[in-house]
């Protein structure tokens, strides 16, 4: 059963573990296989094939000999190392008309993702950053670690300028093995060094997912009157007439979004644009389904 959870309502619930579990329950219901895969698995035993089993685990040689379908079973080991990098800069503390800030939405997304990865027995870690790393939890499995991660997320508050390039470089230093790097950010820190850091991560062999968190207001610039816009990170003031500035703004923001989509494509990253007025479970479910059905990674 698929139904949507209102991001505003979810953000109002203090228990991040409960909320993220609820989201993950909704996300993986009906899925027969994991959306994320490790690099090795140890064979355990055969069992009779049951409808719904993945055909790639059917032992066809045994079928040829016995004329019966058997599915190979493996000992489940922690084989995926996932690191979530969450942008906690001041620009993420913007809600627009959705009622929930980008940071609150991103925090829920990070918690849900951690829950999802942890549930399939893999290791998950967390990095939060603004102009420097504010939290670092290395990738580990287990419920105790997940709770620590969720607690760290709970305590994180947005503020300060973004230095994504330094944060990513530092995160790559800290990652001890190849794995899944999940970057959740509004991506306003757009410079060459971020590009290089992403390419370096891809070169090392990390799988990258970019969750681009946006509000509708950031795409549409819905102001009609004269407004004095203040950049929350730099404090820069721009005086503009909403009606006349809207068109060039939309062109500029479209180009910005297209650049990020292209970067994702060239670096092999999975680029996912998420608006904060989209129900979180629906957004996550759509992404996971796309990943499973599309056979990504």
């Amino acid at each position: 059963m698929a139904f949507s959870l209102d991001p505003v309502a979810l953000a109002a619930i203090a228990d991040l573990e409960l909320v993220s579990r609820r989201i993950v329950d909704g996300t993986i219901s009906g899925l027969h296989r994991s959306p994320f895969h490790g690099y090795s698995a140890e064979f355990s035993q055969y069992r009779h094939y049951r409808p719904g089993d993945d055909l790639k685990y059917v032992d066809w040689k045994l079928f040829a000999r016995t004329d019966r379908l058997y599915t190979k079973q493996f000992i489940e080991t922690t084989n995926l190392w996932c690191q979530i990098a969450l942008d906690a800069s001041a620009s993420m503390n913007y809600a627009g008309g959705a009622g929930v800030t980008k940071f609150e939405y991103a925090r829920l997304l990070a918690a849900s993702f951690a829950h999802l990865v942890s549930r399939q027995g893999d290791a998950v870690g967390l990095v939060t950053y603004a102009d420097r790393l504010t939290h670092y939890l290395p990738s580990r499995g287990g419920q105790a670690h997940l709770r620590s991660l969720l607690l760290a997320l709970q305590r994180t508050e947005p503020g300060g300028q973004t230095d994504a390039a330094s944060a990513l470089a530092r995160t790559l230093d800290l990652l001890k093995r190849r794995g899944l790097l999940v970057l959740i950010s509004d991506l306003y820190d757009e410079d060459e060094r971020v590009d290089q850091a992403l390419k370096q991560a891809a070169h090392i062999g990390h799988e990258i997912i970019l969750f681009h968190i946006l509000t509708r207001e950031e795409v549409e610039l819905p102001f009609r009157d004269d407004v004095e816009l203040e950049d929350p990170e730099t404090g820069r003031l721009v005086l503009a007439n909403g009606a006349s500035a809207a068109r060039p703004y939309r062109e500029a923001i479209s180009a910005f979004l297209e650049r990020w989509r292209a970067r994702g494509a060239t670096s092999g990253a999975d680029y996912v644009r998420v608006f904060t007025d989209t129900p979180l479970d629906a957004a996550l479910r759509a992404y996971v389904r796309r990943r499973v059905l599309g056979g990504a990674a």
Binding site: Y94, K102, Y188, D226, V227, N241, A245, Y249
Partner: peptide
């Protein structure tokens, strides 16, 4: 002249053109 001040994270993409400044002196 009483332009409202708003916090907006994508301010970098807003063009503060001369035209906008001129419009500020024209009636709303």
């Amino acid at each position: 002249r009483n332009a409202r001040r708003l916090v907006f994270p994508a301010t970098a993409f807003v063009r503060a053109t001369q035209a906008a400044a001129v419009r500020l002196r024209r009636p709303t």
